[in-house]
Nucleic acid binder design. Sequence first.
DNA 1: AGTAAAACCAACCAAAAGGTATGTACCCTA
DNA 2: TAGGGTACATACCTTTTGGTTGGTTTTACT
Lengths: 113, 113
Amino acid sequence: MEKKEKKLIDTCPVRKSLDVIGGKWKLLIIGQFFGADMLRYGELKKLIPEISEKMLNQELKYLSKVNILHKKVYPEIPPKVEYSLTDLGRQVIPFIGMLADLGNKLEELEEKV
Amino acid sequence: MEKKEKKLIDTCPVRKSLDVIGGKWKLLIIGQFFGADMLRYGELKKLIPEISEKMLNQELKYLSKVNILHKKVYPEIPPKVEYSLTDLGRQVIPFIGMLADLGNKLEELEEKV
DNA sequence: AGTAAAACCAACCAAAAGGTATGTACCCTA
DNA sequence: TAGGGTACATACCTTTTGGTTGGTTTTACT
């Protein structure tokens, strides 16, 4: 078992979190689950109309892989897939409110200028 | 019909925060001020050796612009510049710890696989 | 005169992220 | 037979982000 030591910068837990939280769409997707237990692919598409299908797919796949979302596939035709937050995913929700607060303070600033 | 107002997506306060928190270096820079009132440009360079000068300059300029950092220039030769957290900047610090916690949970996961 | 020091800037390039367009599977209904 | 619903995949392109290299400024020291 080769222990190729990644640089500190790559194993840093803050960086890991930024992978989950960063990017244009991930938090927006996660936020849709506030008040919704489960959401289907098509529902998410309607809730976030600006997102492209490629991005939605890509991010849903990633968020499932890192255990933020749980993916439940119903073997039906037409297909039916439900996504829901995992326990870990629920821990991301508080960030959204905090980031919104911070963001509002940033906005006030700009308006003054 | 077509108004020229910014899309909701661009004025969203969460997005604004992600600008401040996102990217490869901003949080790492902000984090250096935990336990240090003021840091000079050169000190930051030593504290974060992997960062390029371009990025350090760019991010310091940005963080000053959005009022996360305060920049104090001493009109000396050779130049002397000190950066410190603003009140707003201090509000970013708690995120770092929270993100580290979340990141550790993400790591545990991967190790299990 | 040559060099060093600190804090930058700008030009150019590479890599990553994101967008657009199109295609796939399968069954059902008209 | 054609078209629609659902959840994707793939190829290609553009935009954004980050890295590399090489300046610039002014003074003091050697």
